[in-house]
Design a protein around this nucleic acid. Structure first.
Lengths: 188, 188
DNA sequence: TCTGCATTGTACTGATCGGTACAATTCGCA
DNA sequence: TGCGAATTGTACCGATCAGTACAATGCAGA
C-alpha cells in the first residue's frame, strides 16, 4: 500500500502538529506517527527538512491571514471588515482551543529562525487594522494604539484561555476587545 | 577543579534557559554548556531529571510572584499595591525582553505536564488583583473583567513585543493597561 | 588530622534525533 | 499498454538525547 500526497495537503497537517508540539517538540517520527506520512515523502516535498516544513507552514498561515483579514481590512468598508476580522479570528483560533503558531514561535529561540516572517505577520496585521481605523474616522495616534491593543490582546487571550482551559474567557476577552475597537471609531 | 553548587543557586539559572529555549528545546547538554554544571550535579539535585528541573523552576517563579505581587495585592493598600505590581512586572520581564515561562508553557503540549501549576499561577494572580480592585471600590463584575484584562494584556504584550523586538511597545502597552486599571478604580 | 557523607566529573547505555540513499512503486501521459 | 518522472517505504548514518553508574573529589564535624 502506498498513499500519494500533495504538498498542499501536507502543510495544514504539519501546521496542527507544530501548533500542538512547538518547533522543538515536533519530530519527524511524531509527524509520521500522527499523519502516516513517511520520511521519504516529507523530504521529497521539503528537502530542507524540519526548518523548511515550518517555513512552509508560516507561509501558509500568512496567506490565510492576508486573504481573510488583512486584504478586507485594506479594501472593504472599515467597520464591516473589522467586524469580519473578529468573527474570523474567533473561528480560526477555535475559541482559544487553537493557538497562534506565530505567537508561539516568537516566545522561544525559534524566533531567531523565522524572525522576519514573525515580525511581518504582526506588522502587517497592525498596519492594516490601523489604516482601517483611520478610514473609519479614528485619529492617527489613537488608531495605532487601538490596533496594537487589539492584536496584542488577542495573543494574550490565547495564552490565558489555554492556561485556564477556558474557552469562555477567550470569547469574553475578544468581545471586550471588539467593544474597545468599536469605541475608537467615531459614530458607532 | 570542582565547583560546588547549591540547589537554590541552580534553579534561577535553569529558569533562564527554559525561558529562552522552551521545555523541549532545553537539553541537558545545553544546560551544561551554558552553566558549566554537569550531569552528576543536575541528577543529584533533581533525580527526576528535566521534568523535576522545570517543576522546580515553576515553583520558584510562583514563590516570587506570591511574595512580590499576590501578597501585597491582598494585604496592602489596593492602589499602592497595584502601582507596585506594574513596576514589578515591568522589571521582572525586563521591558519585554524576558518572557513569562508559565505563559510559554501554556501554549504547547508542555501544558499537559504542568497544568495545575500553570492554571494556579494565573488564577491566583487574577483573583488577588480582582479583590484588590473590589477593595478599591470597583464593582464585582467590573473588577473581574479588569483583572482578567490586565493579566491577559501582559501576556499579549510579551508575545507581541518579542515578535516585533520592540521594548517600547511593551512599555506603551503596560502603560495603557495600567491606565485602564486606574480608570476602573473610583476616585483615581 | 581523620572519617564519613555530600557532591561532582566521566564514561557509559539504549533510544531517538534529523537527515541520506536508493530501490520499489505508482502516476501522468503518450 | 508502456515509458519516464514523481512519489514513497525502508534501511541506514553519525550525532545527540535523557538517564545511570560509580569512582574521585571536597567538605564538615570529630
Amino acid at each position: 500500500m502506498k498513499t500519494v500526497y500533495e504538498r498542499a495537503d501536507i502543510v495544514p497537517l504539519l501546521a496542527e502538529i507544530f501548533r500542538e508540539l512547538g518547533y522543538e517538540g515536533t519530530t519527524l517520527s511524531r509527524i509520521t506517527e500522527r499523519t502516516g506520512i513517511g520520511k521519504g515523502s516529507l523530504y521529497h516535498f521539503f528537502p530542507g527538512g524540519k526548518e523548511e516544513m515550518a517555513a512552509a507552514v508560516l507561509a501558509d498561515v500568512d496567506v490565510w491571514f492576508e486573504r481573510a483579514v488583512y486584504e478586507p481590512l485594506r479594501r472593504d468598508d472599515a467597520a464591516a471588515a473589522i467586524d469580519a476580522m473578529w468573527a474570523n479570528v474567533m473561528d480560526y483560533f477555535r475559541s482559544g482551543r487553537r493557538i497562534c503558531l506565530v505567537g508561539a514561535f516568537a516566545l522561544d529561540e525559534t524566533r531567531e529562525r523565522f524572525s522576519p516572517a514573525i515580525r511581518d505577520y504582526f506588522v502587517r496585521w497592525i498596519e492594516a487594522l490601523r489604516r482601517a481605523l483611520v478610514r473609519a474616522g479614528c485619529g492617527e495616534a489613537a488608531a495605532l494604539a487601538a490596533a496594537e491593543e487589539a492584536v496584542s490582546g488577542i495573543q494574550g487571550a490565547l495564552v490565558l484561555s489555554r492556561a485556564l482551559d477556558d474557552t469562555d474567557m477567550f470569547r469574553r476577552t475578544l468581545d471586550r476587545l471588539a467593544g474597545r475597537l468599536a469605541a475608537a471609531q467615531p459614530g458607532r
